[in-house]
Simulated assay, not measured.
Amino acid sequence: MGTVDLTTKLAANFSLGELVSSAKADSLGIDNTPPAAIVEQLRATAAMLQRIRDRLDRAVIVTSGYRCQALNRAVGGVTSSDHVQGQAADILVPGYGTPYDVAKALAPLVSMLGIGQLILEGVGGKRWVHVSTRVPDRPANRVITITDAGTQLGIQPVR
């Protein structure tokens, strides 16, 4: 896909490598190097993540950032995933609390922090927070919870 410097800082606390790193891609031999246009999108995503980090005053761990199409298919992502466009990251902030705690804290701040969409996800026993720079077409989908039981508006406790 070309050469990019994965050590490039996209924001004070986030590097390009952090937003494209994937153990799944490594294990499957998938090149998850983003094209230049996606790197520019990742800059905006990193800026959003930096605002989240600064607001929560805790380190933000990116568990999934950019995914090329092949990686997105391999992890079972939807074809319209914001991850493929470099506009999303799945995060954990263990120093702040559970994913529910993080999502509850961020929900009233989405506009201020430049979060287009905030999703508390709890699927298959795993929990994380999905943040995207893209604002969904339907305002009701801006802050949602997705679990094995389905999708609910707002941030709901995940059992």
Rank of each mutant, 00 (worst) to 15 (best):
G77K: 06
G124E: 10
M112A: 15
G116H: 09
L71M: 02
Q41V: 04
N13M: 12
R127V: 13
L42S: 03
T147L: 01
D137C: 03
G114Q: 11
S81V: 05
G2E: 10
V39C: 03
G86W: 01
D5M: 04
I144Q: 05
G154D: 00
A46Q: 05
G125T: 07
D137E: 12
K24E: 12
V78T: 13
V102D: 04
A103G: 06
R127Q: 15
L49Y: 04
G150T: 02
I30L: 01
P139S: 00
A44T: 12
P157M: 00
G122L: 10
R58S: 07
L92A: 08
L120M: 13
S64G: 07
T147F: 01
P99L: 03
D90N: 15
G122S: 13
R53E: 10
L42N: 03
T3P: 11
A11W: 09
I144S: 00
R134N: 06
Q85G: 15
P99Y: 01
A23Y: 11
D101C: 11
D148N: 07
A105F: 06
A88V: 04
P108S: 09
P99M: 05
Q152A: 15
A11C: 10
D148I: 01
Q87D: 13
W128E: 12
N72F: 10
L109T: 03
D137N: 06
V39N: 05
T151S: 08
F14N: 03
D101G: 11
P35H: 00
V84N: 09
P139M: 00
G29A: 01
V129W: 09
T45K: 03
V129M: 08
L10W: 09
A89R: 05
L6T: 13
L120Y: 11
K104S: 14
G116R: 08
Q69A: 15
Q87I: 07
V78W: 13
D148G: 02
Y96M: 04
Q117V: 08
D82S: 09
Y96N: 06
V62M: 02
V123H: 13
A105C: 05
V78R: 15
K9F: 13
V129S: 05
V110P: 07
V110I: 15
